[in-house]
Design a binder for these strands. Structure first.
Lengths: 208, 208
DNA sequence: GCGATAAAACTTACACCGCTAGTTTAACGG
DNA sequence: CCGTTAAACTAGCGGTGTAAGTTTTATCGC
């Protein structure tokens, strides 16, 4: 086969298949050959649509960010909007935990990331924060959301029971996988509450 | 050569060389062959000391955590100790940004991580927090420290200037690399302040 | 309608990867 | 002194990302 009558690939199809593969089997399962097979194609054909594998992963990550709901920034005061945005942000990331490591690292140069940043900074500046402060607040939210979505706590805290003798407090650490997810969620809720409460207080005090 | 008169490798030497390599050239530069070359040895020889490459990386990560100063937990009230610990934690991670992705993901099953967790949970519980709350607070601190140490903001926010027309607020985002580091540091300081202030208030209110 | 051009798949191949297996040789314990 | 253990080796497997060149089809200007 060469130059089939019906085109087999599009960027969209590739991103879709890559997302499904990463969601189902993790980032490590995403190889160009494997992805191509999934699409009924040979490995190098992907390079007609993406320059590198990293570009494919970037596109997958951007597709995730696209799902985050930023509409609250138009409809609510900055604090409430921030809360709703963060909650949507985390909800989306939690549905694609295998993509979170990518989002936690690369700076978002892609369209969806830029659009999200624009919405956040815009709303905060409109709300009376300086650009510098808006940047800090946005970064903080990213730490909180990505950190609690990495699922690193959920990856298990299975410890050799003999260690409880030398580390007595760890005996009380949550052990079941379900509990670990609850830890990440609880920490996120606590952090979100503390941050927004604190920011609101500072905002009112005019210590800005 | 086979079974040299003088032993060439130890676990310590391997971890040391691996750390140096990762610090200098990043995680991707760490291959078993490359690391072995650096040690004047052939690739597979490493497997006499570590079962897998992942184990080597784990050891590198643990060596980083080992440097975090947890001594404040014995010497200060929980809030002040938490602040000092977080600052040391971040200072150490910032010196080894290429290792942070590893620390952000895997749960710390290794000795130094366990010891650190034990110190944190112990101090918080002694300070009057429940185990559940201590877990949340510890997780929160981890999000803050790892997030702000990833250097993802510092990786550059170089944006096509034409995009400033469609994303006007981004024009004001910091652009120089030095500024990006300052963003991460500023966000960390702000977050730490907000979290500890908020936690102290809750602690005093007895809403625990 | 036809020839040139561009495009979308292909095959082949390179350099590198983590890791296994089996081999050599030096050091150590009885 | 001899057998065992251990620390290096070499060879090689199956996999990776991707570059290069090939084939075939569709598209467009004349």
């Amino acid at each position: 086969m060469a130059r089939p009558r019906q085109i087999l690939l599009t960027r969209e199809k590739i991103v879709e298949a890559a997302s499904a593969l990463v969601d189902a089997e993790g980032l490590d399962a995403l190889s160009t050959r494997r992805l191509a097979t999934e699409l009924g194609v040979q490995g190098p054909s992907l390079y007609n649509y993406f320059a590198t594998k990293a570009d494919i992963i970037d596109a997958v990550a951007d597709a995730v960010i696209e799902q985050v709901d930023v509409s609250a920034f138009g409809r609510f005061p900055w604090a409430e909007a921030l809360r709703r945005w963060a909650q949507s942000y985390r909800a989306v990331l939690s549905e694609h935990p295998n993509v979170v490591p990518v989002l936690a690292q690369g700076p978002g140069r892609r369209p969806a990331s830029l659009a999200m940043a624009e919405a956040v900074y815009g709303a905060l500046v409109d709300g009376g924060w300086s650009y510098a402060q808006a940047t800090h607040i946005g970064a903080l939210m990213r730490y909180l959301v990505t950190g609690s979505s990495l699922g690193s706590f959920a990856l298990g805290f299975d410890v050799d029971p003999s260690l409880y003798e030398v580390y007595p407090h760890l005996r009380h650490a949550p052990r079941l996988a379900e509990h670990h997810e609850a830890v990440d969620e609880g920490a996120f809720e606590l952090g979100l509450d503390l941050l927004i409460t604190g920011l609101t207080a500072r905002h009112e005090m005019g210590t800005r």
